[in-house]
Amino acid sequence: MDTQMNMVSAINNALGTILKQDDKAIIFGEDVGRDGGVFRVTDGLQAKFGEGRVMDTPLAESGIIGTAIGMAIAGLHPLPEIQFAGFMYLGFDQLVSHAARYRMRTRSTISIPMIVRTPVSGGVRALEHHSENPEAMYAHAGGLVVVEPSGPYDAKGLLLGAAKLKDPVIFLEPTKLYRLFKEEVPEDAYELPIGKSKVVRQGSKLTIVSYGVMMPAVKNVVESKKVDAEIIDLRTINPLDDATIVESVKKTTRLLIVHEAQQSFGVGAEIAARVAEKAIYELEAPILRVAAPSLPYPDPGYERYYYPTEKKIGAAIDKVLSS
């Protein structure tokens, strides 16, 4: 049976499914219990599954991620929530020094199956540190799977797919999309593959690669400009499914990459490098990126100048098609 769900309900539904399927799974973090999370993503789960399965913790991000690693070592399946990606840097050491390395350090005798969920992205006029897009940092570490869904259906399927992995997963939830739109989402469990991107629109003149928070904007611009563009939603950032991108670029000969995070050293740079290595002679135009300026996310007053808006995406499409 399908139900209309926004992303918050879809993730809530997926978390409930995981708790039901897997008695080792445990959700914890700041305000996730009684309060149901500051975005209400875990709403009702503590009442349904009890304080032993959905638990509030002291306010300490390194403690949350570090204890999650310990729980995973001991055989539980921790699903910690970090309240905002901008506060997750306090747990960054635990992620890159331990979660990412533990399997390698012990030559696969100990794995760290866990999913760290955290809200990302801007565009919602939030205070400083509430609009971060840190995906490239986690992807760069090596050893961390990084996933960012772009809608309710994908969010549930990717979360259930991630729950089957024995690896540490960083699950980035775009706050801007939490309640932006609803989709038909099956009540039953279904998994989307981790590490595979999806061609969400066929086209022949241009390939646009994006993910997560920027996907609705990309689709809007393409529809309104009536561009013959192929759109690829990465779904998973690390490992990056470059095969789908390269295949598409060979067909369209043009590539535009759109992400909300800063441009320099971002995910777009990695995609551009791989396409250059694997298909540069297929290209008829320079690869372009639409991304944020290479500076930290500003306070909300300046956000509209900083943000990779639909206008900027439209201009980039014109440019890449005309060169």
Partner: peptide, 24 residues
């Protein structure tokens, strides 16, 4: 657990394992 080089960073793991033992 494995040898842990970053000073003090093994401590949350220990707390997490202790939680898990109690939980199970």
């Amino acid at each position: 657990t494995a040898v842990c080089v970053p000073v003090g960073s093994q401590m949350p793991h220990a707390a997490g394992i202790a939680f898990a033992l109690k939980h199970m």
